[in-house]
Design a protein around this nucleic acid. Sequence first.
DNA 1: TCCTCCGTTTAAACCGGTTTAAACAGAACT
DNA 2: AGTTCTGTTTAAACCGGTTTAAACGGAGGA
Lengths: 339, 339
Amino acid sequence: MSKRPTIADVARRAGVSKGSVSFALNGRPGLAQATVDKILAAADELGWRPSNRARSLSVSKAFALGLVITRDPAVLSSDPFFPAFIAGVESVLSTRGQALVLQVVMAGESEQDGYRRLARDGRVDGVFLSDLRHDDPRIDLLVELGLPAVTLNRPDGESPFPAVILDDRPGTRAVVEHLIELGHTRIAQVAGPPAFVHATARTTAFVETLAAAGLEPLTETGDFTAAGGIEATRRLLALPKPPTAIFYANDRMAIAGLGAAQASGLTVPDDLSIAGFDDSELAEYVHPGLTTVRADPFAFGEAAALTLNQLVDGAADVPDTELPPAQLIVRGSTASPAV
Amino acid sequence: MSKRPTIADVARRAGVSKGSVSFALNGRPGLAQATVDKILAAADELGWRPSNRARSLSVSKAFALGLVITRDPAVLSSDPFFPAFIAGVESVLSTRGQALVLQVVMAGESEQDGYRRLARDGRVDGVFLSDLRHDDPRIDLLVELGLPAVTLNRPDGESPFPAVILDDRPGTRAVVEHLIELGHTRIAQVAGPPAFVHATARTTAFVETLAAAGLEPLTETGDFTAAGGIEATRRLLALPKPPTAIFYANDRMAIAGLGAAQASGLTVPDDLSIAGFDDSELAEYVHPGLTTVRADPFAFGEAAALTLNQLVDGAADVPDTELPPAQLIVRGSTASPAV
DNA sequence: TCCTCCGTTTAAACCGGTTTAAACAGAACT
DNA sequence: AGTTCTGTTTAAACCGGTTTAAACGGAGGA
């Protein structure tokens, strides 16, 4: 409970001035090596760590990065993707003594308000831009606010921010090709809301892969939620010629769709093949196991944090980072169609 | 990009001293009403908001609360419970201009290190203690660190911290009674790790409710993960006289158990009734829908934040808060046993 | 008229760091 | 010996607030 030592205590103990301690700590040149050693020793003996608060004030930095998440269940923030992503981010931040600040935007308000609050309160030095939309208005907002950012995936408009990219198309292509190889010809997708960049990426990959095989795409749009997945599935199954295989843009919808198919009396995969996207924890354990696509959210978080920090540290041109694409995981929910 | 106004700008504009502006802002007595009005008007015109960083330094507060989460999949932090809990916390913090700081502890390290880091860096004014263990060592640690905390649920030992309590027993009792009323007599549970307070609460309620009905409990211990749920389920189903109903301590294990039962050829609920705990998003949509117990994690977060803030604000005796117990949600996964 | 008192306001110190400009000492050069 | 240079070190200002002690000015009392 005894008050923690300040820079003045260290200075006194080492017999130098505050300024010298600061120089020694930050490895500034111009101090004699012997003095540096003496100061570091004193700091060590006192167990001194510079106060974040004081540093924050004098250098005008927060030493923290921000993540805005919405309560809208349609966005990834509510996906199993997120905890691992956050862990990846933290694995970088904790080594640098930075903190991760969460900002939740409530149901009633605009997502932009979350960024505004973070900027206004000076809580963070930069933010992650997840769940990118087409012509995402948050990009202009952040430019206006002067808040550095990194986008998760590549925005379609002009963007002054570096991007960390995990291309969804190869993974999608892999699933669809898998279904085609099994012999399916009536393949449907339950897409995500077209406003999201990653949703349309999956949709176009789906459509293109089918087209390359000379097949007609069949699309229903969901909203990434389990409830939406059910609705879309029902519509597909009610068609005069229902599909024999359905690809879902995420696992939540896929698992719900699996339930819907079973509830309507179908056997998966005999009557209907089902595939998802994400490889969430439950995908392996539902019955039958869900064929899906596995990305590496932890690595995504790591890469995003590293990139954002380069920017925050004032690097001139921060390059985009491309992550290895997601892998196809084949499980019991996909099989050749019944004759 | 023009620099934001400081207290000095406001003081100059209002024709008073910095001190007066500070007094006016914080509603201190001793200023003439006319002066207060003048100052507030000036602040308003300039769009001035006091700098968090400067305030942090001078009053030695972080204006932030902390949440430590582990990557250990056995803890609630990885549950669907969490996003809603966090939203509840934020709903309180955002009105007070506070931030929520996340601290992830990695696989290799001790959970305590997370709290140590938060305290050492002075990032937060208090922390939430989730996933309480029996004789939880974090309590002593936080006392030692001098970091205020609120415990989620009631610790069994002595604790200087207020608790926010959501009693798991009534919900558990409700599910078990539901199963008994359906006519089941061989009822098993898949419990959570006994180190957790909430896991044993559910276990004892399970055992006591069965005992009250003159029935023998049957228990397998899981670890709150889907994989663990599967294992435990297999062990139960391999018994010479397998149960006709299984209660799982959370939905993740229950949904996995449902898959395992189906994979082994059983029909749910005809051959086996299954019930979970949490009412996660997918519970409603798997097939058959999962009978479970629904709590209100948002309200939990709200209550925890309010309680912790009372403590942080220096209230003398902060009372515990008791939340309404979880409700039974009956769906298709439970039915009377086949003769 | 002078003193006291009280409500109001302010100057200045403080929080704990960083940073700049100037002081300082010793060596090297005339 | 005096000057200049260079490598070290320091004093002091600064970041933007809060807080304390003292100054101030007008009203009331003697």
